[in-house]
Write a protein that binds this DNA or RNA. Structure first.
Length: 234
DNA sequence: AACCAGGACGTGA
DNA sequence: TCACGTCATGGT
């Protein structure tokens, strides 16, 4: 197990070395020191770990976590901009939005019927928080918020040390031989949290780096072809 | 033209 | 607890 711990730390170093700081979570109106663009998407803020600072920033991240469920970020981002154009990226505004208008705005992100419901549920929850940080358990009670979404909200919107696991994480680390693909969400999450310093920027960067890396080598079958990391860990 | 994306839920073993 | 079908659009 100590070997696993060591390699999880080593892989982080290697990914950071390969891609550098990722600046997650992207924000539309990013006022960080040097917001940058990744591909066709703007709003990343590498090395700025103070964001989000405003209430609307936190809310925008929460909306983004719902919109990007099983959906490419590029399309979630389009939906996010549609809402922003409607001036509906404000909790009180989104709640008042007509359901059909809401659905047409988020259409590019897919699953519009479900996500319209989820967005209003999580928005109501956010308003009732009244600025407080939610617990993981509370978040999971909101319909539409599962394990990954809850951890993404806690890590990126509320800066809580909760490691985010996604399908890319499962693919990458099973391919590297550190876990198996059937491992449960919580077990894989615990594996990371027990292997890393309890540090929010590290958690934020590691998940973002896994996504960046997996997009290149784990988006098509067979997974992991040409992955430079596979040599490191045998 | 299939395949899949920064998942979650409901159902039935 | 766990496997499986469903939800939907658009890019590659």
């Amino acid at each position: 197990m100590s070997g696993t711990v060591k390699r999880i730390g080593d892989i982080y170093q290697k990914l950071y070395q390969l891609y550098g700081p990722q600046g997650w979570w992207p924000l539309i109106d990013c006022k960080g020191p040097k917001p940058v663009k990744t591909g066709a998407v703007e709003g990343y803020h590498p090395l700025n770990y103070d964001l989000p600072v405003q209430r609307n920033h936190i809310y925008e991240i929460i909306v983004g976590t719902i919109l990007t469920q099983n959906t490419a970020w590029l399309q979630a981002n389009t939906a996010l901009h549609n809402l922003n154009d409607l001036k509906a990226l404000v909790p009180e505004k989104l709640l008042k939005l007509d359901d059909e208008i809401l659905k047409s705005a988020i259409r590019p992100a897919g699953f519009l019927n479900q996500k319209a419901i989820y967005l209003k549920k999580v928005t109501q929850f956010f308003i009732e928080l009244d600025g407080e940080t939610p617990s993981r358990k509370e978040l999971l009670e909101v319909k539409g918020v599962g394990n990954e979404t809850a951890d993404s909200i806690l890590l990126y919107a509320y800066k809580q040390p909760e490691f985010v696991v996604d399908t890319y994480t499962r693919r990458l680390f099973s391919h590297l031989g550190l876990s198996h693909v059937e491992i449960s969400y919580l077990k894989l999450k615990n594996l990371f949290e027990n292997s890393l310093p309890r540090d929010v920027p590290v958690y934020q960067e590691y998940h973002a780096l896994i996504v960046e890396h997996a997009k290149r080598y784990y988006n098509k079958k067979p997974h992991g072809v040409g992955d430079p990391l596979s040599r490191l860990s045998i």
